[in-house]
Design a protein around this nucleic acid. Structure first.
Lengths: 349, 349
DNA sequence: TTGAAAGCGCTAACAG
DNA sequence: CTGTTAGCGCTTTCAA
């Protein structure tokens, strides 16, 4: 910013003392360093008068502490990550740390690159929502002993503190709720296969089917990632190939929105023609044509826990005892699960 | 992070050269500084071998450029600001700048405080979505000649580059659409009075009423801020006090959600019993019980323009010619505006 | 073609 | 009670 910032030097000069004294006084160490009240006052006055703002950069260099944490997410505009971002920044700020935001655009290449950037910025800690796929970079973080928290997804061979929802239980709850209504065939709109959040939900889905003795038809699982587009495609395929399908379970808000689009194109009514449950609650869910039953994850808590775990690591220099933090989820029953309609043509409600 | 980072010194030593030479080679100035290819290679090799990561902190101090921009928003988890955050970070990153995220929690005190923090971090530029209320701090930014872009809201007496939507026109469009259906009384669920985004929308609302010769009953304007709670309260009041009310215009997504809650409690059906339009589109809007007609603002464009304006300022050191950037909005007709129902009791659909 | 030296703004050990 | 000194890691004259 254009204006040459005021330096400690200038404050010291104005107060007629040396930099060290000024530094001490401004650091609130007047008592401790037995600085005379009048010099202290002079220094404080000079600082205020000149509008002195200590340089964090210089301080960082000297103290070898940047006072920065990094936050690396696949999509900062996704409400889930945005909520985490908020919690993290606020918590960090409260501990005197500022937050660098980085958005990997769902690309593992970007993720690695940004990780480098963040590291070269000397971040003291990192909250990362990794895309997954490869995770050498995570393992290397693990080795360096950096303060890191992995959020949302986890990786069996990466021993870093991780916070995520109880995905399997959530999916089990959702699927069970559907089965209870008497549905025989449930379409599954999955997210990105290979990610823990997806695979755990899938496991819960299958477990519920198994324990109900229902048919585990793998063909009823579709989808490539957590996007609206994937949800739409998956729902279309399922609807076209299995006209008798009476219920669907969407693994994300976006997937569900895609499904709703597919339904609306086909004039399918929820829950009359088809039932739907989605993973992750959203403010709008209860105002949809049919208020959606959902699995609610406590996003706030996830963000909070992540920040907490990170700050602890930074302060103690130690990884926490518990590495895997699984936060509970909750089934919220609304009106989107009905009874299976009578076997009939799929297009005319 | 625990591991002592590798310094330039070490790389230089390993390559058997001085820091200066190493610095030059690693800065890609080999040609320019006529460094012999073999020493260059040696340096690059050593750097790679040791996993050298230049210290941004040291560099910042030396170059007097932090390579940081600040992003100060009232609520990082609000999709609107989250989208802007994303655009800004990505754009900034592309220009070698990292983004510091700060969340003022809708509090002007926090806003000022965080602004200080960001400044002491030597940010080279700042994108700020100010709460408003007071804006001495903005005026002081104006004076220092800092690179700043104000987003979403603007302030008549603050001469800083600003990007916002054409709120007045949006509101005019929305209100006109309602009037065209024959509604006589339109409830207005406003956001925070005193903010430009609110007051401009209000102006558009009133202008539409005026030019249609409709009654401008100020009593039909309610609401305190852009939250769901405010929307709910406002809608309840309006509904209870004016049973003949047949349409509402919500100034934000949240306000609209609040209204929907009020409607649903009263078993009011949209658009049969009551019509609704909201400012700002949302992915879910078309899947609501009645797909909502909305005024769509181009959030991506706002974020993009803001980042662009900021980077330009940073590079040129100059404020742009045009200070006020008003991005166009669009009326998206869906199904939430119906004809006014026959005068009847308000509670039984 | 390379090195030595200075200094960005700050803090802290060590002297007075 | 306060000042002097050194140095965090890097870049950039200036000199060789």
């Amino acid at each position: 910013m254009p204006d040459e910032p005021v330096t400690l030097e200038q404050v010291a000069a104005a107060a007629g003392v040396s930099r060290s004294t000024a530094s001490r006084a401004l650091a609130g160490k007047a008592r401790e360093c037995r600085i005379s009240p009048k010099t202290e006052a002079a220094i404080l006055l000079a600082a205020k008068g000149l509008g002195f703002q200590p340089s964090h950069v210089a301080r960082s260099l000297r103290n070898r502490r940047s006072g920065l944490i990094g936050l690396l997410v696949p999509d900062a505009s996704n409400p889930f990550f945005a909520a985490i971002a908020r919690k993290a920044t606020v918590f960090a700020e409260r501990h005197g740390l500022s937050t660098l935001l980085a958005d990997s655009h769902d690309s593992i290449e970007h993720e690695k690159e940004l990780l480098q950037h963040l590291q070269s910025r000397q971040v003291e800690g990192l909250i990362i929502c990794s895309i997954g796929g490869t995770h050498e970079h995570l393992r290397s973080l693990e080795r360096t002993g950096a303060s890191v928290v992995v959020v949302d997804r986890w990786f069996a061979d990466v021993h870093l503190p991780t916070v995520t929802s109880d995905n399997e239980r959530g999916a089990l709850l959702a699927t069970t709720a559907i089965l209870k209504q008497g549905h025989q065939q449930i379409g599954c709109l999955q997210g990105r296969p290979g990610t823990s959040s997806n695979d755990e939900r899938l496991a819960g889905f299958k477990a519920a089917l198994a324990s109900a003795g229902a048919s585990q038809d793998a063909c009823l699982i579709r989808g490539d990632d957590f996007s609206e587009a994937s949800g739409y495609r998956a729902a279309c395929e399922l609807l076209d190939e299995h006209p008798s399908l009476s219920a669907m379970f969407a693994f994300s808000n976006q997937n569900a929105l895609g499904a709703l689009r597919a339904f609306s194109e086909r004039k399918l009514n929820v829950p009359h023609d088809i039932s739907l449950v989605m993973f992750d609650d959203a403010p709008f869910a209860e105002y949809l044509a049919a208020p959606l039953s959902v699995i609610r994850q406590d996003v706030e808590a996830i963000g909070h826990r992540a920040a907490e775990l990170l700050i602890d690591q930074i302060r103690t220099g130690q990884r926490p005892q518990e590495l895997l933090h699984r936060l509970p989820v909750e089934f919220v029953a609304r009106e989107s699960i009905g009874s299976p309609r009578k076997p009939a043509k799929a297009t005319d409600p």
